[in-house]
Amino acid sequence: MKAVITVVGQDAKGIIATVSTKCAQAGANIEEISQSVLKEYFAMIMVIDISGLSLPFTAFVDEMRVLGEANGLDIRTMHEDIFNSMHKI
């Protein structure tokens, strides 16, 4: 089972480290990262494997959101099903 994390916000040092540390602590394995900085904005999309999560997925979604708020970032974590159902026939 996979999920997609999107991170958007003002560019700052250590954003990738902050997010990936949290993922590691929760038992999520990062499979892919795509990241870019446009002017001062930072945008990152991560695909993670959530089969080994040490906490319920909904709790992980909340923790990532709170982590985002604490760092001035918009962090969304969504199950891959929504993208697959919408874009694949």
């Binding site: 996979k2 997609v4 999107t6 795509s34 999309i45 695909v47 969304r76 969504m78 891959e80 929504i82 993208f83 697959n84 919408m86 874009h87």
Partner: peptide, 12 residues
Amino acid sequence: MINIQDILETIN
């Protein structure tokens, strides 16, 4: 594989 454009479209 999930396409990045698709992800961005859905989130938008």
